[in-house]
C-alpha cells in the first residue's frame, strides 16, 4: 500500500522536490553585487574614470603599476607579506598543533587562548600593537631596554615596518592555523606511531615519515587560506602604518584605497584586477601542487 502512494503523489504535485529556483535569491544577490562589478572592473581598469564618465586609455593604468616606483613597491610588498605570513603561520601552526595534541596538561585552555585573537577586531589589534610598538615609549622597546637591547623603530623604520605588521598578522592567525592542524593530526591513527616505535624509528623519523605526509591536507588548507588572506590583507596594514613610512609598507590593497581616495578610480580598479590576477597566478599552482601530492600518497 505505501509503495503505491510513493508512485503517485510527488509526481503530480510538482517536478522535483529540490527546485532549482532555490538558487535564485542567493544567485541574484551574488550575481548583481559581486559578479557584475567583477566583470565591470575588467573594462573600467582600462579607462580614466570619475564615476560619471570614463575614457578608454588602453593598458595605461597597468603600465603605471609596473613603472611608478611606489606602485611596484606595493606589488612586491604584497608578495613578501603573503609569502612570509603564510610560511610562518604554517610552520608555527604545525608546531603548536603537535604540542597541543601531545599529552600536555590544560590542552583545552591552551587551544582557547591561542585561538582567541582571530575573533577580536583587526582594527583593535592594529591600534593596540601600533601603541605597543611605539619606538620610545612602547612596551616592547621598554622591555627590551630592560635587558639592554636598544629596540628599533618597529613601525617607523622603512625597512622594518612591513615585517612588523606581518608579525602581528602571524600572531593573529596562528591560532586558527594550529586548530586546523589539530583537526588533521588527531585523524592520524595512533597505531602507525606504535608500529614505527616498535621498528625503532626515532621521534624525528616518525615526524618526517608519518606526521608530515599524513597531515598534508591540513597543511594545504592552512597554506592556501593564509596565502589568499595575506594577498588581500588591508585592515592591519592600514591601521598600523597606512602604508608608511613613505610607501615602504604599501600593499596592493592599500594602494587601491589610496587611489580611490585620490579619485583615480581607473587606477584603483586596475589595482583590483592585478590583485585578482596575482591570486589566480600564485594560488592555482599551489592548489594543483597539493592536489598532485595527495594523489601520490
Amino acid at each position: 500500500m505505501p509503495t503505491a502512494q510513493i508512485e503517485k503523489k510527488p509526481r503530480k504535485t510538482s517536478g522535483s522536490p529540490y527546485p532549482l529556483w532555490f538558487f535564485l535569491p542567493a544567485g541574484v544577490i551574488y550575481g548583481v553585487l559581486f559578479l557584475v562589478p567583477t566583470f565591470a572592473s575588467l573594462y573600467f581598469s582600462l579607462t580614466r574614470w570619475n564615476l560619471f564618465n570614463s575614457t578608454f586609455i588602453g593598458f595605461e593604468n597597468f603600465l603605471s603599476f609596473v613603472q611608478e616606483p611606489f606602485l611596484i613597491k606595493g606589488l612586491i610588498n604584497t608578495v613578501i607579506f603573503a609569502v612570509s605570513t603564510a610560511l610562518l603561520k604554517t610552520i608555527i601552526g604545525l608546531a603548536l598543533g603537535i604540542l597541543l595534541t601531545s599529552n600536555i596538561r590544560m590542552r583545552g585552555l591552551l587551544r582557547t587562548i591561542a585561538f582567541f585573537p582571530i575573533l577580536v577586531s583587526t582594527i583593535g589589534i592594529g591600534i593596540t600593537f601600533a601603541v605597543m610598538m611605539h619606538p620610545t615609549r612602547g612596551i616592547i622597546n621598554v622591555s627590551l631596554e630592560l635587558i639592554g637591547i636598544d629596540g628599533p623603530g618597529w613601525l617607523t623604520d622603512p625597512t622594518l615596518a612591513l615585517y612588523s605588521v606581518a608579525f602581528v598578522e602571524v600572531w593573529r592567525g596562528v591560532g586558527l592555523a594550529s586548530v586546523i592542524f589539530i583537526a588533521g593530526l588527531v585523524s592520524i591513527p595512533r597505531d602507525y606511531y606504535e608500529a614505527a616505535r616498535i621498528d625503532g624509528a626515532t621521534k624525528w623519523q616518525q615526524f618526517k615519515r608519518i606526521t608530515l605526509p599524513l597531515v598534508q591536507p591540513a597543511t594545504a588548507t592552512v597554506m592556501i587560506l593564509s596565502f589568499v588572506y595575506g594577498l588581500r590583507s588591508f585592515e592591519l596594514i592600514w591601521t598600523m602604518t597606512k602604508g608608511g613610512p613613505g610607501f615602504s609598507s604599501d600593499v596592493i590593497a592599500s594602494v587601491i584605497y589610496k587611489q580611490y581616495q585620490a579619485g583615480f578610480y581607473g587606477l584603483s580598479t586596475a589595482g583590483n584586477v592585478i590583485l585578482f590576477i596575482l591570486i589566480a597566478v600564485m594560488v592555482m599552482p599551489l592548489v594543483a601542487y597539493f592536489n598532485r601530492r595527495e594523489v601520490d600518497l
Binding site: V32, F44, R232
Partner: peptide
C-alpha cells in the same frame, strides 16, 4: 567568491 577580492570602485558605481 572565496578567492576573488571584490572590485571596490565598480561596486560603488553599481
Amino acid at each position: 567568491g572565496l578567492m576573488i577580492p571584490p572590485a571596490v570602485v565598480p561596486t560603488i558605481w553599481l
